[in-house]
């Protein structure tokens, strides 16, 4: 592996509370993601996994340590409009159509809208017939798909996914994940996904990083070698379930009180 696409080196993130006290969300957190690799960060809620994503997105800065993307600061990537992010809340513009929402990254970047690319993205996420619909006319799953199309709009160098399907019901979520696996197989962008859903992480990622409870650290790394494109058969593979079971156990343990070294 040459220079990693994304590198977090002994990152510490503390959030100040009252005077003099602070809560440590991340403690000497290390993570390297290679170019074109899909890494899922898996952790119990409140373990700081969303903080990892916000640091990589440049929405927060680390208290200690460094976060670099392609050797530069995240802010530089953002300034070049080369970052795509899909959040748990779709945050679509409610007054704009699905098409206008996908066009937003071009407008914000001050570039002419690539209509052909917009059409292609709407087709990729299966919303060609809903281009003129406003977000509230779409189902929850459709809104998330628009948000993912928006994140992919400018063919970003790095894609960040913060539980993009976290607010959906289990059936829709599973279908969305299979769809995301298909979309990703076509785009192959360096991707960081944070989630607490083990199936989702194992289905989508090349590598799954399990975090400890707060303060978050890397507890375990698992390489996932199922061939791509991954379809629904993968989820029936006994090897898939074996990995899911093992990671779920790790997750349960890191969730137990007293196991994390928060008190230290």
């Amino acid at each position: 592996m040459s220079q990693p696409a994304i590198a977090l080196q002994s990152v510490v993130k503390e959030f100040p509370l009252r005077r003099g006290t602070a809560v440590r969300a991340l403690d000497r957190f290390d993570l390297q993601i290679a170019d074109g690799e899909f890494v899922a960060v898996l952790g119990p809620s409140g373990c700081g996994k969303s903080t990892v994503l916000r640091l990589v997105a440049g929405l927060d800065t680390p208290s200690e340590g460094t976060v670099t993307i392609e050797g530069a600061r995240p802010a530089d990537l953002v300034r070049g409009h080369r970052l795509g992010v899909a959040f748990q809340e779709h945050a679509l513009l409610p007054w704009a159509s699905a098409r206008a929402n996908v066009e937003l990254p071009w407008k914000v970047a001050g570039r002419p809208v690539d209509t052909a690319r917009v059409d292609e993205l709407l087709e990729l996420v299966g919303l060609t017939g809903f281009a003129d619909a406003r977000p509230r006319q779409l189902s929850g799953g459709m809104r998330q798909r628009v948000a993912i199309a928006r994140a992919l709009a400018l063919t970003p160098d790095v894609l960040l996914l913060d539980e993009p399907f976290g607010a959906l019901d289990a059936v829709t979520r599973r279908r969305m994940n299979l769809e995301l696996a298909r979309i990703w197989a076509e785009e192959r962008i360096t991707t960081l996904l944070v989630t607490h859903d083990v199936d989702e992480a194992v289905l989508l990622a090349d590598r799954v990083v399990v975090m400890t409870g707060r303060p978050g650290r890397v507890r375990h790394t698992e390489s996932i070698d199922f061939p791509r494109p991954r379809r629904t058969e993968v989820t029936r593979d006994p090897a898939f379930h074996e990995i899911v079971d093992r990671l779920t156990r790790l997750l349960d343990e890191s969730d137990e009180p007293g196991h994390s070294d928060a008190a230290a």
Partner: peptide, 27 residues
């Protein structure tokens, strides 16, 4: 303006003017 919307504009590298006109004002 909701934080989620601001975050989206921030990671898209939107200028302050663009954020005000395309997000904060219509919202």
């Amino acid at each position: 303006t909701a934080r989620a919307g601001r975050d989206v504009f921030a990671v898209l590298g939107a200028s302050r003017l663009s954020t005000v006109l395309r997000l904060q004002l219509p919202a």
